[in-house]
Amino acid sequence: MNHTFTLPNSGHNFDAKASKLGMWLFLYTELLLFGGLFLVYMVYRFLNQEAFLEASYELNVWMGTVNTIILLTSSLTIAMSITALQKGDKKLSVILLWLTIAAALAFLVIKYFEWSAKFEHGLFPGMEHYDALPVGERLYFYLYFFMTGLHALHVIVGAVFILVVVKKINNGSVNQKRYSLLENSGLYWHLVDLVWIYLFPLFYLIH
């Protein structure tokens, strides 16, 4: 290309502020996506208070608590990883990211055991025991699977995102001067955390 002139405000320039702004806007859409589900939850909880209470005793509060602690800690590790990279400690930053990924996996493993316990009791929509439940309890379990399932999907996406960042730190394209991708993965991970902070009390704790 015999292209000589480039605008100072080119869209092809690297712009850390733009990518951060873009990430924040994307997080708004995620919040509204879950917001729709929280709205449905609120309406049906209001309409079926007794049944929701009854059904919530089926959940394992201990597993939920452990998962909450794991997720909150992982938010800490990723925030520390960002600071580490900003200060130039690439090695520590990568270790902290691996810790975050490990926490994501631990969360998913615990979630797996929780879900399979529900499956054994036949509580998944369409199963025998589920169909015999009163309407309100069916709605509760339906929302439980839908919302924690969508959240688990976000955990997986977030872990993959962080894995990509690890690779990019290792090959140097994310570094001390150019760390917005790491920062964005952190923002995304905090969102995953935030959604769980609401899911946990709504399903496990309200008695």
Binding site: L7, P8, N9, S10, G11, D15, K17, A18, L21, G22, L25, F26, T29
Partner: peptide, 14 residues
């Protein structure tokens, strides 16, 4: 939409 918002915020000519 996301793309346009960021474009308008960041890429206006000086």
């Amino acid at each position: 939409g996301l793309n346009f918002i960021v474009t308008i915020h960041r890429l206006r000519t000086p």
